[in-house]
Computed example of a mutant assay.
Amino acid sequence: MFVLIGITALILYSLLVFYVSRSCWSWMGGKTPVWFKYVYIGLIVLLSTSFLLGRIGEGLVMFQILGAYWMAVFCLLLLVLPIVHVCLWLLRLTKLSRSTAKAGAGLVVLATLLTAIAYGTFNAYNPIVREYRVEIPKPNPAAQQLNIVMAADMHFGQLSGRQHAMRLVEQINALQPDIVLFPGDIVDDDLRPYEEKGIDDILSGISARYGVYAVLGNHDRYRGQMDHFIDVLEQGNMTILYDEAVTIDDSFTLIGRKDRIDRERAPLSELVAGIDASKPLILLDHQPYDLDIAEQEGIDLMLSGHTHRGQIAPAHLITGLLFENDWGYLQKGSLHSIVTSGFGFWGPPIRIGSRSEIVQIQVIFLE
């Protein structure tokens, strides 16, 4: 079944690559020498396979960076080119010459592409602070209010590196959090860039009264022992909750789940068994599934990431269909669900229709 899905996806991707490359060639093919045709074909093959090669092979930095930018351009062209082709077809009904229309369309595509990349890059690398206020009808003997700062989906790697990590620490500390929570995808599939760039040293600069707690996401992967992976992350002065629960200051309980793709993930009912439900229960779960189960198990606040809010529109329409809450705030009975669009990005360092963000949650405890 998985092989069939993979072959189907590969065929569809190849057809879309052909459509994009053929469209671009029709714009410039008549103005170039014949030898350039073969160079162009080789370049398209290199670019279209670079993303896959960068993800499959560890340490292939050039392919990882090249593939990320290729996917950005590829996705944007898939959005722009169909509109341009429809406009060109309509222009045939006018007296405008076909060559003039085609040249103008090429310039429009180029200008749109450059503008979108600049705009999307700004959205990816310039996160904003998004604020929420949540009331939980449970007493907290330590304080009536809890200032939570959350960031997810940093995807620290080749393109989300030291500067992005320093920006994260600076913005978090400026919010003076009581506790900092990372609901997964701290690393972008490969642990080595995280170690080589010294991201752990940078993250250790986060200051919070109760410290930093995190769970792992579907991209927090490691081919060796998971204990080593967790040890490396915890060198950044954070505590990884790996299907674990911890009560903070005898006031509220944090529950951190393994990611949904982990076959050894325990059911939520097992994790909450024996926990004092009179205290506020906060759940970290990377993928925002099973809100009804979280509500049934007495969770007060569930924090997630994973969706990126689609990252590049109109993918947000897909995430909206897949998840009951794909971004923002949703209350389901006594459960409060907050999903962040993420601090970083996956693949292309581009965000269109979404924005990198840090989330600040003011939790009010009521008697």
Rank of each mutant, 00 (worst) to 15 (best):
W25Y: 11
L291N: 11
A9T: 07
F74E: 01
T100H: 12
T112Y: 09
C75P: 05
Q296T: 11
E196N: 14
L78M: 13
V134S: 07
S269Q: 14
T307D: 03
I275N: 09
G305V: 00
M28W: 10
F156C: 06
N126C: 09
L93Y: 10
L66H: 04
L317M: 13
T247S: 14
L330N: 10
H306V: 02
L241M: 06
D190H: 13
F365G: 02
G29T: 03
H286M: 01
F156P: 04
H286D: 00
D292C: 09
L146A: 06
L291T: 04
H155L: 03
D220N: 13
T100S: 13
Y119K: 14
Q235P: 08
R133N: 08
H306G: 06
L53K: 12
A152S: 15
D285S: 15
T100C: 13
G198A: 04
R257M: 09
Y125E: 01
D188C: 06
G333S: 05
G106E: 00
Y13I: 01
L60V: 09
R98L: 07
I148K: 06
H228V: 07
D276V: 08
S341H: 03
Q64F: 01
L93K: 15
P33E: 00
Q225S: 15
F122P: 05
H228E: 05
A151W: 00
I56M: 10
H155N: 03
P267M: 10
L91T: 08
R355P: 04
F323H: 11
L317K: 15
A273Y: 11
Q171H: 08
V232C: 10
K31G: 07
L203Q: 05
Q331K: 15
V34E: 09
M226I: 10
T49S: 15
I5S: 14
G344Q: 03
R130F: 00
A124V: 02
E297G: 07
I312K: 11
V363E: 00
D276I: 04
M238W: 01
G236A: 07
M150S: 05
V129Y: 03
A151N: 02
S204Q: 11
V39P: 09
S341G: 13
L52M: 14
E244L: 06
E196T: 13
G353D: 01
N147M: 03
L79Q: 12
Y329Q: 08
R260C: 00
M150A: 07
R55F: 00
L146C: 04
L366N: 13
R167C: 05
I186E: 00
I44C: 14
L301D: 01
I56L: 13
I282C: 06
Q176D: 07
K138Y: 00
L366W: 03
G161D: 02
H155C: 03
Q360T: 04
H316C: 07
